[in-house]
Nucleic acid binder design. Structure first.
Lengths: 95, 95
DNA sequence: AATTTAATTAGATATTCGCCTAATTATTTA
DNA sequence: TAAATAATTAGGCGAATATCTAATTAAATT
């Protein structure tokens, strides 16, 4: 949980997560989205992985990164403790 | 939003928020909960206030701090973008 | 008015963070 | 097997962060 809060406290890492909503991407494709060197992106990916916000799967010489539910769940759980005290708007229908 | 992510990326500040679930507390009462000096707590309170996660109301020589919905909403909004991709467990009945 | 109490602001310091360049590892292709 | 490609690891540096002590502000009490 500690790791997840740390991971999302950075604009670049949050943008990486946003980008991965589109689906899995390899490190090079991710790096291309940002005006930053590959080693820097690599480091961000490492922190996101530590936080279990993303998964990494090696496919040949590429590494495919994708969103991982676990990290988001840990944030969700923390948040729920407060949500109960505030009553956030709920969708009209349950999906 | 930036400020909210920054604010919750610290164990002490998250504990302050937890403590405030019980209800409003003044700075001294909050500081008593932690093995840390009052100026340090004061600084944490300032960051939480900047993030609109807490409100501060001066009552005489005391300042009463309480949870503020706004900051939590900004985190909630960000989170919702991902929640849709994962389907988090929902309560059985709508309250 | 002087003292006490609650809290913040100011300034210093050690640690962590984000970024870079250079070097390394691992895989594919010529 | 040598060269090229994908990605990481290593090392260094300036900026940001968390903490402390000392000083300041503001309100209440004596």
């Amino acid at each position: 949980m500690e790791a997840a809060f740390k991971a999302i406290n950075d604009a670049t890492r949050r943008e990486i997560l946003q980008f991965l909503i589109q689906g899995p991407q390899n490190a090079g494709q991710i790096a291309k989205q940002f005006d930053m060197t590959k080693p820097s992106i690599s480091h961000h990916l490492d922190l996101l992985k530590q936080a279990q916000l993303i998964d990494a799967v090696k496919k040949g010489q590429f590494i495919h990164y994708s969103l991982n539910k676990k990290g988001f769940e840990s944030i969700h759980q923390w948040f729920q403790g407060f949500a109960q005290h505030f009553e956030f708007p709920k969708p009209k229908i349950r999906l």
